[in-house]
């Protein structure tokens, strides 16, 4: 399915200053808020709330794997965001809207990323 599908899924062009840490809040707004909503409140029956969500503040490896590989209607972000960007985004979520969990360092994403990804067929285009 090379035609105009996933063969050249590429790194999102996010303007970040060379030495600044990625802005988790801005990354969340750009990549996640369309579904999970601006305050992480989700939409019942459609998109899970991230605010006060036990899974979100739980096992860092499971959270990292979910964001890297996707789940249900949520896309995999392993190709569109780098580890430090993923770490900043997820850490922002874990410390916002009533969530109180420690940040997840980029190293966790790097470790989970090297694990075997659940095989997804290349994106068919219709």
């Amino acid at each position: 399915m090379m035609k105009f599908g996933f063969a050249f899924l590429a790194v999102a062009t996010l303007a970040a200053p060379a030495f600044a840490a990625p802005d988790g809040k801005a990354l969340f707004a750009a990549n996640c808020a369309a579904c999970h909503q601006g305050a992480g409140q989700g939409i019942p029956g459609a998109f899970p709330a991230l605010a006060r969500n036990k899974f979100v503040v739980g096992d860092p490896k499971l959270v990292a794997a979910t964001v890297l590989n996707g789940r249900g209607g949520m896309p995999a972000f392993r190709d569109s965001l780098k580890d430090d960007q993923l770490a900043a985004t997820v850490s922002f979520v874990r410390m916002s809207w009533g969530n109180k969990a420690p940040a997840i360092p980029p190293a966790i994403f790097a470790a989970v990323r090297t694990g075997k990804m659940k095989t997804e067929r290349p994106m068919p285009v219709h």
Binding site: L9, N31, A33, A34
Partner: peptide, 13 residues
Amino acid sequence: YYQFMGDAAKVSA
């Protein structure tokens, strides 16, 4: 445009 997955999530914001 006709985009998918993470790109679609992003543009849809």
